[in-house]
């Protein structure tokens, strides 16, 4: 039966290939599980660290990258993706891993600056010449203004946009939880759609020409310019916005098993090194290093910001209050 033999041979060949792939995966290296737009940053950072590690420890190190939606990534880590380190765009994602016992509960204090080596903020991106003269958050609730943002409940960018508007309203004279919710409700009424993600919101705004203003990370504006041209839009810095932090953490369970703790620690520590900080600035992420921030001042205009911890008491409170089922977002969409 020649067919049967061929089939068995084939299966054996595939099995061999499989083991080959498996063996290659277990080399001396790190797996960095990250959110999707972090690719540019780590594409430049990894060679920097490899050079540094070669110089200091005399070892070649292989760094593998995984990028996808932030929450999806930490779910994968909880389900057994062998990440040595996680580099996320939202603390609630790392909190989830802490809850599952994969990451230390005090991960935010194991590195400086709330374990966030760089920051960004939410800005308003408007069309060339700012035809609707949008200057601040309160311009976005005016009738006839269309706001484009990613889904506020299901995406990281969307949640930051939501909290930025909420925090702004709260900090206005006489602002309270009720007025903030009303403010955000009016803003969301001006949203003709909720995009599937940050990138999709950009495409909708830039390519499909829908909406008057796009809510986005300051750092993504540069990516938008690369894709659609710099003169096509303007960045408007609101009077107050949210400081977005990008927490990093070592996945204890994995590094202990693989024996990569020292390497993982060095990898994350190096993010705060001058070279690491400068790399952040070059990728339009605000470095923590004050001197560098000054050096790149033209790129990072000063803006008044608040953190999630200051206004919302941390993500562990903000997330259930606003984004879980029945939270403030859902309340805005209850049938009356």
């Amino acid at each position: 039966m020649p067919m049967l033999q061929k089939f068995i041979l084939f299966v054996a060949g595939v099995a061999a290939a499989w083991f080959a792939v498996g063996a290659q995966a277990d080399g001396n290296g790190l797996l960095n599980v990250s959110y999707d737009v972090a690719r540019d940053f780590y594409k430049d950072y990894n060679p920097l660290f490899q050079k540094h590690w070669q110089a200091t420890a005399g070892q070649k190190v292989e760094i593998r990258q995984s990028h996808a939606g932030s929450s999806k990534q930490v779910r994968a880590v909880a389900d057994g993706l062998d990440a040595d380190v996680v580099t996320m765009n939202q603390a609630s994602d790392v909190d989830f891993l802490a809850e599952k016992g994969l990451v230390a509960r005090d991960y935010a204090r194991r590195f400086p600056n709330n374990a966030s080596p760089y920051t960004s903020t939410m800005v308003l991106i408007v069309r060339k010449g700012n035809p609707k003269a949008l200057k601040d958050w309160n311009d976005l609730i005016k009738p006839g203004v269309q706001v484009i943002l990613p889904h506020p409940k299901n995406t990281g960018n969307g949640r930051y946009s939501y909290l930025a508007a909420w925090g702004y309203a709260l900090r206005q004279p006489g602002g309270n939880e009720r007025s903030a919710q009303e403010f955000v409700g009016r803003l969301l009424k001006n949203a003709p759609l909720f995009a599937a993600g940050g990138r999709d919101a950009t495409t909708t705004f830039m390519q499909r020409r829908i909406g008057d203003v796009l809510l986005s990370f300051e750092s993504e504006a540069e990516l938008i310019a690369r894709e659609f041209g710099k003169g096509e839009f303007e960045i408007v810095y609101p009077s107050l916005s949210i400081l977005t932090e990008f927490p990093v953490a070592i996945v204890d369970k994995v590094v202990d098993k693989k024996g990569t703790r020292k390497l993982a620690q060095a990898y994350l520590d190096y993010l705060w090194s001058p070279a690491g900080q400068e790399n952040a600035a070059e990728n339009y992420l605000r470095p923590r290093d004050a001197a560098l921030l000054k050096k790149y001042a033209s790129q990072f205009p000063p803006i008044r910001t608040f953190t999630v911890d200051e206004v919302f008491g941390g993500w562990s409170k903000a997330f259930p209050t606003h984004f879980k089922d029945g939270g403030t977002f859902d309340q805005l969409y209850q049938l009356k």
């Binding site: 929450s71 999806k72 779910r75 989830f96 889904h151 409940k153 299901n154 949203a191 003709p192 759609l193 909720f194 995009a195 599937a196 999709d200 997330f319 984004f323 879980k324 089922d325 859902d330 969409y333 049938l335």
Partner: peptide
Amino acid sequence: IFIAGNMPLISEITPLLIISKLEQYDVVG
């Protein structure tokens, strides 16, 4: 999700609600 607009009660499909539950780490839901 790319073409729906995803507005609650208007253009939100059930698989999106499943994803939404997963985003809240509510696997059982």
